[in-house]
């Protein structure tokens, strides 16, 4: 599996996710600068976390309009898989590749800790190594992760099984106690309709080594390799 990792001014998890990919593929991903309107064809595009363009105007708003994202949109429409993490999730929702948006956390604080996630669907490129209903422990680090969509959009994504992960309690209960940011319906990650684009606020790339607190994020990358090699 050959992957491209985008780099914007202000990205800061691009190296983490590149290392996660290298760990499972033994192959370094291509790093693509935001100003590049064209880049090597790859099996996967990753939009990493960080603070692209200093989060000016709205998180992800500027990056969504960059030359590289115009190309990512073209490729995503052709079915090239896109994994968007944290700020990447904000960028792809701003770019219109995923439904809804990420707002300021309900409690207004930056939240940086492990959270529990319930796998809502194992039927995707990204989640095929997990079981539906499985509970994962993965870190989050964000101030704008409060997922919001209007009532019609929410109904549509629920009906079509586009929710990938929900925040939950350690025992898998989906309620307010496990929700770190006020996200609507505890949504932590969503797919596009064809499930070739996934965005999530938690950082699976930071949960790949047991000596660093857990490896529940590793199967996501292993699943991608299996599906895309």
């Amino acid at each position: 599996m050959k992957a491209a990792v985008l780099v914007f001014p202000g990205s800061n998890r691009e190296v983490d996710v590149a290392q996660a990919i290298e760990l499972v593929t033994a192959r370094k991903p291509v790093m693509v600068w935001h100003g590049d309107g064209d880049f090597e064809k790859t099996d996967l595009i990753v939009v990493p976390g960080g603070f692209s363009y200093g989060d000016y105007l709205r998180c992800g708003a500027m990056a969504a309009q960059s030359p590289v994202m115009a190309e990512v949109k073209r490729r995503a429409t052709q079915g090239v898989p896109v994994l968007a993490i944290c700020n990447g999730f904000q960028i792809v929702t701003e770019a219109g590749l995923l439904p809804g948006t990420l707002m300021r956390n309900a409690h207004l604080k930056f939240v940086c800790r492990d959270v529990h996630l319930k796998v809502e669907s194992s039927q995707s490129l990204f989640t095929n190594r997990y079981q539906q209903g499985q509970v994962l422990r993965i870190p989050v680090a964000h101030a704008e992760g409060n997922y919001f969509a209007d009532a019609d959009t929410l109904k549509r994504i629920e009906d079509r099984g586009q929710v990938a992960f929900r925040y939950c309690a350690p025992d898998g209960t989906v309620d307010g106690t496990g929700n770190p940011n006020g996200s609507l319906a505890n949504i932590a990650g969503v797919f596009n309709e064809s499930k070739t684009v996934m965005g999530l606020m938690p950082h699976p790339e930071n949960a790949i080594e047991s000596m660093f607190g857990g490896c529940d994020g590793k199967p996501l990358f292993e699943g991608l390799v299996e599906a895309l090699s």
Binding site: L57, A61, M62, Q65, T93, T101, M103
Partner: peptide
Amino acid sequence: RKLLANTVI
């Protein structure tokens, strides 16, 4: 529509 506002919210 393109940049200044996010019409979702």
